[in-house]
């Protein structure tokens, strides 16, 4: 390409005409190639992402029980039903509480593990693998281990066995509302599953920090430990920290698997997706209400994501 361009001024007019015919053909070829490359994805995006949302918006204005081609228009009825539905509103509260619990704990745990692994001199790859290994587990498998073994409410559950050794009566971890022990079960399961993932991100960032900065801080009299961490490490990790917080929050929005498998459909801890699942795919098959709920949730998430991006100075497209 570049050779042709530099040669261009020297060529005679006849060749110039040929070139422009060539380049028109080239542009046609280019446009055709663009569509050929992008068409499979674009068609799928329209059919399986944009069209469902549009159809859902349509359904949300109809009484659509057990049908996806409804005839009874109800206007904003589904939206007012959902927004005044105590169960739906409480699911939004559950989900906010969950985000408040899981995001900071994951952040602290993954950063803590990354710093430990980063400074250890022996068997670093081994430790990294151990903390990363749960990434290979599904939420279903973790729920199974947590529900039926670690936090089994009967006497032979692991946590209850340990408590038994110090003379504490067995606790029914998932059924107890006061204190709400189920949060311990839910949060530790996800913490175990995802801490290693975020640890990898922090580890990569830590290894990019120039060691000379620490030496300079030492020479300037900064005490190793908290001072160095607070004034050197943490500021340098800022971009990664923001990524981790956002990714963690986005993952928390989608909480379904562990709630569904650990708690079923109990009313005291039912995040929106679990509620919508039972509404739209349970015996009611209420696609109208389910669609309205999905769209309300999507709108909330989109607003929060944009606001968060603005506040944290993140999320400009293309960088």
């Amino acid at each position: 390409m570049s050779e042709q361009t530099t040669a261009a001024p020297g060529v005679r007019p006849a060749t110039g005409r040929l070139r422009s015919a060539n380049s028109t053909r080239a542009i046609h070829g280019q446009r055709r190639a663009f569509w050929l490359f992008i068409a499979p994805f674009l068609i799928g995006l329209v059919v399986f992402v944009y069209f469902p949302i549009a159809w859902s918006a349509f359904l949300s204005f109809f009484d659509a029980q057990g049908t996806v081609t409804p005839t009874k228009f109800v206007g904003l009825g589904n939206y007012t039903t959902m927004l005044t539905d105590k169960a739906f509103v409480s699911s939004l509260v559950t989900f906010s509480a969950f985000a408040l619990l899981i995001v900071p704990t994951t952040f602290v745990m993954s950063l803590f593990l990354a710093m430990l692994v980063n400074r250890v001199r022996v068997a670093r790859a081994f430790f990294r693998s151990v903390f990363f290994l749960p990434t290979a587990c599904s939420y279903v498998v973790a729920s199974l281990i947590w529900k039926l073994s670690i936090f089994n409410g009967v006497r032979f559950g692991m946590a209850n066995t340990l408590l038994g050794w110090i003379g504490v009566e067995p606790i029914s971890w998932l059924a107890s509302l006061d204190p709400p022990w189920y949060w311990l079960v839910i949060v530790t399961a996800r913490l175990w599953l995802q801490a290693g993932f975020y640890m990898i991100l922090f580890l990569a960032a830590l290894q990019n920090i120039n060691p000379e900065l620490y030496e300079a801080a030492y020479v300037d009299g900064a005490k190793p430990g908290w001072q160095v961490f607070r004034h050197i490490t943490l500021p340098l990790l800022r971009p990664t920290s923001i990524s981790v917080l956002l990714l963690c929050l986005i993952a928390a929005y989608q909480a379904f698997d562990e709630f569904y498998n650990l708690l079923g459909a109990v009313e005291y801890a039912r995040p929106p997706l679990v509620y919508l699942y039972h509404l739209a795919l349970g015996s009611q098959q209420n696609f109208g209400l389910g669609s309205a709920g999905s769209l309300i949730l999507a709108a909330i998430i989109a607003v929060v994501t944009v606001l968060q991006g603005k506040i944290l100075g993140f999320g400009k497209p293309g960088d």
Binding site: V49, Q254, S294, V306
Partner: peptide, 18 residues
């Protein structure tokens, strides 16, 4: 990029309808 703002799981009802 617009699709990145809404996690895929949230729209499972619409997707199931299709």
């Amino acid at each position: 990029l617009a699709t990145l703002m809404i996690p895929g799981a949230v729209t499972f009802v619409p997707s199931f309808v299709i």
